[in-house]
């Protein structure tokens, strides 16, 4: 099997694990962990295509990864701040118990 396919399979497996985590866990932070895993799987895909695909001098893959990492960092910061705010208000971080989002 070519190395590109191996990396793509690894990324697909990582994405599936992240999706399973995000779908099944009840704790908001664990859902966030699942989402982070999925984002990282996408990054792996981008880099694998850059490395083994045509025209690597254009550096499109690494640039996309750079942007994804920045967006993911912002997402994690805001997400965790939201979780802390919700915890402060409702005393819980289990997502099925947070039913009302109005102030």
């Amino acid at each position: 099997m070519s190395p590109l396919k191996l990396h793509l399979l690894l990324a697909a497996a990582l994405f599936a694990v992240g999706l399973a985590g995000a779908l099944t866990r009840r704790h908001a932070i664990l859902v966030l962990i699942g989402i982070e895993l999925m984002l990282n799987a996408a990054n792996l895909n981008l880099l694998a295509f850059w490395r083994y695909g045509p025209n690597p001098e254009a550096l499109n893959g690494p640039l996309f990864v750079l942007f994804t990492i920045a967006v993911a960092a912002a997402e994690a910061a805001v997400g965790l701040a939201l979780i802390i705010a919700i915890h402060r208000r409702y005393r819980t971080t289990r997502i099925e118990e947070i039913r009302r989002l109005h102030g």
Partner: peptide
């Protein structure tokens, strides 16, 4: 606490997605 919300269906969805992606890659 139970760790999972709907463990079976969630894992099944993830497995199905992986199967689809792997099929495409292969």
């Amino acid at each position: 606490e139970r760790i999972a919300n709907a463990p079976v269906s969630g894992i099944l969805i993830a497995l199905a997605l992986f199967a689809l992606l792997a099929w495409g890659v292969l």
